[in-house]
Amino acid sequence: MRNYLLSKCLLFFIAASFLFVPENVQAHGLLTNGNQGYEVSALQEKLKKMGFFYGPVTGYYGAITERAVADFQYKTNLSSDGVAGPATFLMLNDIEQMARVVHGEARGESHIGKVAVAAVILNRLDDPAFPNNIGNVIHQTNAFTAVHDGQYDLQPNSYAYRAVMDAMQGWDPTYGSVYYYNPELATNTWIFSRPSVTKIGNHLFAQ
């Protein structure tokens, strides 16, 4: 799944300053079957929004949580052992940041329009002209309107998370685009100079 996954373990230490990793993971390196507490509840909530966890949020890491973690790991090309360790939480953090951008920038768009915004983030990750990790791509100065107008701080809904998961699994309706904009709202004339690739909903996607 793109070059992105090859550097996940190394980026864990680089991203530690802004990464949300539960205290139990920081102290012991993992959450696993038999653990309980708010860290487990938070994990269950995230997995539920992404469509992996179907049971009640109990704060207990049992067989249902273990299966949900393993399914998530399998879908994101991690070792699917059902144990939530640093690499799993780094992936969850990346997806959380992407979902916030998708929700902020495209919550009024169709599912394909949401996937397209997530795909642009991943395309930038693969482009040497942009930063080489999700957090830096998203927080690059003036990269995404939602980050500097406050919409990034809104809580994403399940549609945003699932759109990100579709993009992470290789769906790119933008055909490699690294820019997008609403031609009715854009004020930066530079963006109009970029070669257009496709239009999805209210957004034009461009190289």
Rank of each mutant, 00 (worst) to 15 (best):
residue 109 E to T: 03
residue 45 E to P: 02
residue 15 A to V: 08
residue 142 N to T: 05
residue 68 A to L: 04
residue 108 G to F: 10
residue 174 T to N: 04
residue 120 V to C: 04
residue 61 Y to G: 09
residue 168 M to Q: 04
residue 26 Q to P: 01
residue 174 T to C: 04
residue 188 N to I: 13
residue 133 N to P: 06
residue 80 S to D: 10
residue 186 A to W: 07
residue 147 V to Y: 00
residue 144 F to D: 00
residue 122 L to K: 05
residue 133 N to H: 13
residue 45 E to D: 10
residue 150 G to R: 02
residue 186 A to N: 08
residue 73 Q to S: 04
residue 163 A to K: 05
residue 106 A to H: 03
residue 64 I to M: 13
residue 55 G to N: 14
residue 148 H to Y: 14
residue 103 H to M: 00
residue 27 A to S: 15
residue 181 Y to K: 11
residue 93 N to T: 01
residue 115 V to W: 02
residue 133 N to M: 09
residue 116 A to D: 04
residue 111 H to L: 14
residue 65 T to S: 11
residue 134 I to A: 03
residue 112 I to M: 14
residue 110 S to G: 11
residue 153 D to L: 09
residue 17 S to V: 11
residue 186 A to V: 14
residue 92 L to D: 05
residue 77 N to G: 06
residue 24 N to S: 15
residue 94 D to M: 01
residue 38 Y to H: 12
residue 52 F to I: 08
residue 171 W to H: 09
residue 175 Y to E: 10
residue 57 V to I: 15
residue 116 A to K: 09
residue 122 L to D: 01
residue 80 S to I: 03
residue 99 A to N: 01
residue 9 C to F: 15
residue 3 N to T: 15
residue 9 C to Y: 15
residue 89 F to H: 01
residue 37 G to I: 09
residue 179 Y to I: 01
residue 75 K to T: 05
residue 99 A to W: 00
residue 142 N to Q: 11
residue 140 Q to R: 11
residue 189 T to K: 12
residue 145 T to C: 04
residue 153 D to E: 13
residue 157 N to S: 10
residue 166 D to M: 12
residue 54 Y to W: 01
residue 31 L to I: 09
residue 76 T to A: 08
residue 17 S to T: 09
residue 26 Q to L: 14
residue 30 L to I: 10
residue 174 T to W: 08
residue 33 N to L: 12
residue 51 G to V: 14
residue 21 V to R: 12
residue 94 D to W: 02
residue 35 N to L: 09
residue 99 A to H: 01
residue 88 T to L: 04
residue 193 S to D: 15
residue 113 G to T: 03
residue 73 Q to K: 09
residue 191 I to H: 08
residue 46 K to S: 07
residue 200 I to N: 08
residue 71 D to T: 10
residue 48 K to L: 07
residue 58 T to Y: 08
residue 160 A to Y: 02
residue 143 A to S: 12
residue 38 Y to I: 10
residue 141 T to N: 15
residue 177 S to I: 06
residue 28 H to M: 06
residue 201 G to Y: 12
residue 45 E to T: 14
residue 183 P to H: 10
residue 37 G to F: 08
residue 113 G to C: 03
residue 7 S to K: 15
residue 1 M to E: 11
residue 94 D to S: 02
residue 134 I to S: 04
residue 77 N to I: 08
residue 48 K to C: 03
residue 16 A to I: 12
residue 127 D to H: 14
residue 102 V to C: 04
residue 108 G to L: 12
residue 160 A to C: 03
residue 108 G to C: 02
residue 76 T to I: 03
residue 59 G to Q: 15
residue 189 T to W: 05
residue 117 V to N: 04
residue 11 L to I: 14
